[in-house]
């Protein structure tokens, strides 16, 4: 069965409330949840905090995954040079929230980010140009909108509907994820409720559901390639970090002095193993 994702739950100072929100998200049927740290201009950047301990039952624990996410608020004056550093890489997802047209253009084209998000609960202040959006889509970036503000307040709701319907119509709903942006447990809604709400925003039924399931999953894989790989093709790790079941992959790369004696005595069934490991190395 597909997993439901909610990749934007706000990090709040009150630890009890935070736990409660995450537990409610788990009960509602979300299986992958990201806790968001918002970085505004002038805030100090810290490494990703560890996942929050929740007292869940064993069964719930098995199906529940907690991730960390950072949302950087961009303005014209922001210095973007730190977006590739190690502290940022310690977060699972990197999102940016442009506040001006220029920063939106930069976020769509130049910056290496996973997700572009907006504050749809007020007037945006700039126009989302089709050309920039297309550039971002071509580069495999994702867009997000949050339904949390629509639940909180009727004035916000008007803006959320206005902005999202406009946005969805333009882009026809591709590469879009929907998340809650919840600060309190009252802002959370069950996945199927949200999918139905997305139909009201102008998405098709299939798109609405995939924006909660397969699209966020694709986003997480893209984020992993940004964080952990060199040019999206090579990963480097220490030999000791390899799990037991994958140990055979490095058997072929042992030093020749210790391996030479064994090689003469190898049985036929060892042959394919060696071939496999050679293949992997060439990849």
């Amino acid at each position: 069965m597909v997993k439901f994702h909610d990749l934007n739950i706000a990090r709040v100072k009150d630890a009890v409330a935070q736990k409660h929100t995450l537990r409610i998200a788990c009960r509602l049927g979300y299986e992958v949840v990201a806790v968001t740290t918002v970085l505004k201009n002038g805030d100090e950047l810290t490494a990703a905090p560890p996942p929050i301990e929740l007292q869940l039952t064993k069964e719930e624990q098995q199906n529940f995954q907690q991730l960390s996410r950072i949302t950087v608020v961009l303005s014209d004056k922001t210095n973007n040079s730190y977006l590739g550093n190690d502290k940022i890489k310690s977060y699972d997802i990197l999102a940016v929230q442009p506040t001006t047209e220029k920063s939106f253009q930069v976020a769509c084209s130049e910056l290496n980010v996973d997700l572009i998000t907006f504050d749809f609960s007020t007037w945006l202040g700039f126009h989302l140009k089709h050309q920039y959006v297309q550039t971002a889509l071509r580069l495999g970036k994702y867009f997000e909108f949050t339904y949390g503000p629509a639940i909180r307040d009727t004035t916000c709701r008007r803006y959320v509907f206005q902005n999202t319907t406009d946005f969805v119509q333009r882009k026809e709903g591709q590469n879009t994820i929907i998340s809650s942006g919840a600060e309190w447990p009252t802002d959370l809604r069950a996945p199927y409720d949200v999918a139905n709400l997305a139909i009201l925003f102008g998405m098709k039924e299939g798109q609405a559901k995939s924006s909660l399931t397969s699209t966020p999953r694709a986003l997480l894989l893209k984020a992993a390639t940004r964080r952990l790989t060199v040019k999206s093709s090579i990963t480097i790790g220490h030999v000791t970090s390899i799990p037991e079941k994958d140990k055979w992959k490095i058997e072929g790369s042992k030093p020749p002095s210790t391996d030479a004696g064994k090689r003469q005595n190898t049985d036929d069934h060892d042959e394919p193993k060696k071939k496999k490991s050679k293949k992997l190395k060439s990849n």
């Binding site: 409720d193 709400l197 009201l200």
Partner: peptide
């Protein structure tokens, strides 16, 4: 259906107290 469901989803306070419609089956 879509209208009723979404209206229930977005209804969040009754007499200034938070409330929430849980839709369990459709």
């Amino acid at each position: 259906l879509v209208k009723v469901w979404s209206a229930l989803t977005l209804y969040s306070s009754h007499n200034d107290k938070p409330c929430h419609f849980k839709v369990s089956k459709v």
